[in-house]
Design a protein around this nucleic acid. Structure first.
Lengths: 210, 210, 210, 210
DNA sequence: CATGAATGAGAGTTCATTCAT
DNA sequence: TATGAATGAACTCTCATTCAT
């Protein structure tokens, strides 16, 4: 997996030192990808710097050329994963017919993303202990994006006026747990079917029939 | 917190060695309570055996009279917390008028529980890494209990026939995240209000109007 | 195995405290036998007091009613084993036709003893580290007994006059290693055959033909 | 003592990780020598890693750069000592006039070796408990070398045809115990005198007069 | 910039011994 | 005399971080 999509490379590196040469950029990239694999597989505490450098094929000491500490690389990773989810879900919202359809598309996109990035659960969850600020930021900003969508939907008359932050957190909770159950635990059901069930629930629950 | 409520004391102790004297039982209890505090505060990896025994007011070595390892006491704790939530929520279901009301009562009870047991999030979440079997069991059995309730509601004609495991996981996800947001992060809103919002959502979403 | 043959019970107990009641004597005996099994199986350092008391079927604390320390029980055991070998070999010397025959009989008896008391090697050998005095005493006194026999044989004109302490140690060395090879490692060859080979060697080597 | 004589350095290092730099090789050497001293003086169980690193003048953690465990360094040491004896005795066999003389030379060389390497007894003996495979290998291979020499002597008509594995073990036993008595316990008698006594015994016992 | 050896604080765990009952 | 819980020193091993080359 390439842990750093263009825009994020800067964010991740900002944790450490910015490489000046092309060779340096390649090494940084290798270390970040290796860190995603290491922490995704073993978790933060069981994962080790030497495990990361071994995967990356560089010397132990080279790690500290790019990151100040084990915490620093983990923080970079958490923000990177968080941004990736956001960026992967965003496009799916564009083509939605209405707000309910947008939520359906968002859940479907998220489940798809989780199926190819199962490590996201371990990494975000462990952030609760290692980097509480990023953990909080991830969920707070995700909920805020959902809430903004709900408000917009209400203004357009597609959703009931009462929609609130509570609904946003409820929807986020559903999405996260359905992703855990139907992406990480097993992939038996198609994402479309799951998203459709939730869309029905929301359509009746907070939608306005026109 | 008393980590060992009646029925669970056996389960917890079964991890370690069963004390033969009253004095031994008091010490085991003290160690379990101290472990809940230590791990709730610092997490599994940052928490230490010596931190536990210091809180419990016993010697370091005494820990090993009751548990074989740091993992063992954590496992005992996870099962204990899991059982506690279940046992705390169960009674609230009894007085419910219908299935929607039952879910409302369950969420309200859960939020109340989480407010006095904030450590439950850290402990259950960290189980994903330390004791995956218990982590899985906790959520699988919780979802199964919800699913059973939904099926019963459908049979009584209170809920739509289409209710499924997906709905159960969606509801569990809502509850967990609303508990995180409105119990652990802050307690500004009354549990009743939150539970009411969700009840409305469910009533329209999967309820049958009579 | 009964580690304490009549006469030795006193010697062993002298390490600890002499029991006053019949019940006490039974407990002491049980602890000594359990210690022989424990140390024979696991060695001194890997063996534990709790292992001994578990085998003996008594409480941990009871051990200290009879012995002051782990070292003390081991010392008692080493002397006990040493005495047992001596006492088991002694009678075999009585019926010997001459001194060469006596050595043959001694080796044969020793190999027989070692086959039923394989733990003797582990216990005596480990005494080198745990109780050097007993270790030294065991071999010094064994060698001295052999040397005395050789001198007597020489005086009776059955052995060459030059027999010395060196011969005694050489014979002891042969016996010990043949016991290791043909009792502990495997028991394929009959003790008589091995003893006969050595007897031949000695007959020619230090015997006087008459 | 230099624990790693040319050919053995590889064998010893194969237990741990092979150093890539000259500095690393020096440190490994220092640790091995320190381990020989520590274990020779205190035995395996009483000896400690920190004792080894203190003697070697390196940090505690550096030990684990070269060996995986306390057991591993001990195993390396046992094989190293075993090889050293073999390599020290071998040259003395070359100049022997006949097979009896070869055994005399071997014993003399061994006693000489033991006087400058008294720790060999403690290390080999303790291997019985810590590294049984190496213990067995040491004595089995030593006995086999002696047996091969005896067979060769018999074929050359210098020894009786009946020489066998039993004789080999008998000779090894003599050598080991004479080394213990006249090298480790005290050095009063010259090695030549002791070896001569045994040579006489063997000459009459298994030699053929020409 | 890269390398890999060196460091040492800190953790979990063991168990002989003591002690209260 | 018997019991078993309590004690705490001591040990092995880990690994993030530093540093010399």
């Amino acid at each position: 997996m390439s842990a750093t999509s263009g825009a994020d490379a800067g964010a991740a590196a900002s944790e450490g030192k910015v490489p000046r040469t092309e060779r340096g950029r390649r090494t940084l990239r290798a270390i970040l990808d290796a860190a995603a694999a290491e922490f995704g597989e073993k978790g933060f505490h069981e994962g080790s710097i030497s495990g990361i450098t071994r995967r990356a094929g560089v010397a132990l000491g080279s790690f500290y050329t790019y990151f100040d500490s084990k915490d620093a690389v983990f923080r970079a990773l958490v923000r990177d994963m968080s941004d990736q989810v956001r960026d992967h879900v965003a496009p799916s919202l564009r083509g939605a017919r209405d707000q309910i359809d947008a939520e359906r598309a968002a859940l479907q996109a998220f489940i798809g993303f989780a199926r190819t990035h199962k490590e996201i659960y371990r990494i975000i969850d462990e952030a609760e202990f290692v980097d509480p600020a990023s953990f909080r930021h991830h969920y707070a900003s995700t909920a805020e994006r959902i809430a903004a969508r709900l408000r917009a939907g209400a203004e357009r008359g597609e959703l009931r006026d009462e929609v609130s932050e509570i609904h946003a957190w409820a929807i986020m909770g559903m999405n996260v747990f359905l992703g855990l159950r139907y992406s990480v635990w097993d992939e038996e059901s198609p994402p479309e079917a799951i998203a459709e069930v939730v869309a029905q629930l929301l359509a009746r629950g907070i939608g306005i029939d026109r």
